[in-house]
Nucleic acid binder design. Structure first.
Lengths: 289, 289
DNA sequence: CGGAATATTGAGGGTCATCAAATGTCGTGG
DNA sequence: CCACGACATTTGATGACCCTCAATATTCCG
């Protein structure tokens, strides 16, 4: 039912020597292991109490671009945390079309969707070289039973993911294409900043097609919108390279004025965009519209 | 920051006599209480072990149409389970627009979004008279620590909600208006059936505007689509009363054929819809497109 | 270098939002 | 009981937004 490359995740936890292990389709596992403290730090969880007595070690596995961490229908028993690299998670509808759900990066947890039916409903694909921490869910939950902070944090992370998806639904239901792309850029900028990277200049790790799938748009609309943002100076874009020139305008770009643009039909869109940018820059002095 | 009717939920748990308590804006609490076993049954959780020793009682509160169970920004410490009635949950974006996120009904759990930031990010409003069970989250989680099945179930419910929202994102990103409305009707039908009510005939508890908000459409589009379904016989609709005439066609309605309709522009849509319905009914014998 | 994948840009049309008007429903009070 | 207003629903006309199709340019990688 899920005829993809890699086998089930269960077999991995049995490999404790981590030599080469190219068997059964799984990529090589580096000899890196994390303890609970490392994991909590990565998830930005404040674990107060002394947990140094935990001897459990979480295994790291390395994936190359294009490799799948888990597939739809695969039996669930692991959560995954990104230690480095970039991925996408996708759902596959009944007609076989992929829909991008999220772009996990360092510190993000994924695989939660597998808990309910004891198998994953989504698929995670590496977009770059990735170092992924395997988190056996049963063990993790059991540790939560003795570490109150950890249990709270697990619930919290799941709640955060739910809120994130709800915000996504809200966005798809109410924002126009330009606002969606603007928010996407702002979101990426914020996430890079939070990780200590530059929020002003970064490279997109995904294609226009994947961005469009994530935002409910076509790749052409994404490309056109990025070009339009570039033309009016909000960003500078060259293929995958992005430079944010006016973060505030991107953040406040909501929905281009419904009508009221008496200019000729041609070039009206660019004028509207420019007007929005101008209004956003001069935060207060809007000339009576 | 959240200047709505009702006060914080925290004060309620202190009321154990449940007399009239019309104070502080909360609606009257009936003298109904549930134990853990009742709650698990309602949530469709299989609790194996003996949990009859639990003396904790979950309070019921009654809400009338229009009343809010919780509001955005309100401090979180409760989850809520619907014992009877129908509600909506909404998110409110920065410009004050409401976006319907879900329509909870009997057996559904809501309030999960409040865990992460210790305050709700959404608002729950009763659409009919509702009997709601208050579930103090800390107490619930603590019970999960001693009842493994319960802990698993809590994680499972949260995972299910996440998956549901992901499916919603996928739908909004890929389906046209007719397919969204069709899925909405099928979803309602399935949920009513699962509760023992008729999945063929039921009343909508929400307005066209709320349906549209939920599906990312305008109320006019919802109305038009329902009328179109009615015209080709898929359903019978009269205001809030719905009768499903062809569930299979609704389930298989995906996306009306992109082009290929060389008929005149007028009435082309109805022909396309009729064609889809016919194709869905004769599940196999499609005459060469 | 050459082929595949990705990205850009243009032209045209379909879907659905917007605006508008009429009808239907419901609760309230005269 | 009916008038009245507020709200919900239906239906039509119009066109903006964005998808589709298409051609070209650019990058990546063997």
């Amino acid at each position: 039912m899920y005829p993809r490359k890699n086998a089930d995740a269960g077999s991995v936890s049995t490999i404790n020597t981590s030599s080469g292990m190219a068997e059964n389709g799984w990529p090589r596992a580096n000899k890196l292991w994390s303890n609970l403290s490392d994991v909590c730090t990565l998830l930005r969880i404040n674990i107060s109490s002394s947990i140094t007595d935990d001897d459990f070690r979480f295994q790291h596995v390395h994936f190359k671009p294009g490799q799948r961490i888990h597939t739809v229908g695969q039996p669930f028993d692991m959560l995954y945390i990104v230690n480095s690299g970039f991925l996408k998670t996708v759902m596959i509808d009944e007609s076989g079309n992929e829909q991008v759900i999220s772009f996990p990066m360092k510190g993000d947890l994924f695989g939660i969707d597998g808990i309910h039916n004891r198998q994953y409903t989504s698929e995670a694909v590496a977009l770059s070289s990735c170092d992924i921490i395997l988190v056996p869910f049963k063990k993790f939950a059991a540790m939560g039973r003795t570490h109150a902070d950890l249990e709270t944090a697990i619930y919290s992370v799941m709640s955060r993911e739910l809120t994130r998806e709800q915000a996504m639904v809200s966005m798809l239901g109410s924002l126009c294409a330009e606002a969606r792309v603007a928010r996407f850029l702002v979101s990426l900028s914020d996430r890079f900043s939070a990780l200590g990277y530059s929020g002003k200049e970064f490279n997109l790790r995904m294609t226009r097609h994947e961005i469009g799938s994530y935002l409910g748009l076509t790749l052409e609309t994404v490309s056109r919108t990025l070009s339009a943002f570039n033309d009016i100076g909000l960003i500078s874009v060259d293929q995958r390279a992005i430079a944010i020139n006016d973060l505030h305008a991107l953040k406040t770009l909501r929905r281009l004025p419904p009508s009221r643009a008496r200019t000729k039909p041609d070039s009206a869109k660019k004028k509207a965009l420019a007007a929005v940018a101008a209004a956003a820059q001069s935060t207060e002095a809007v000339p009576a519209a």
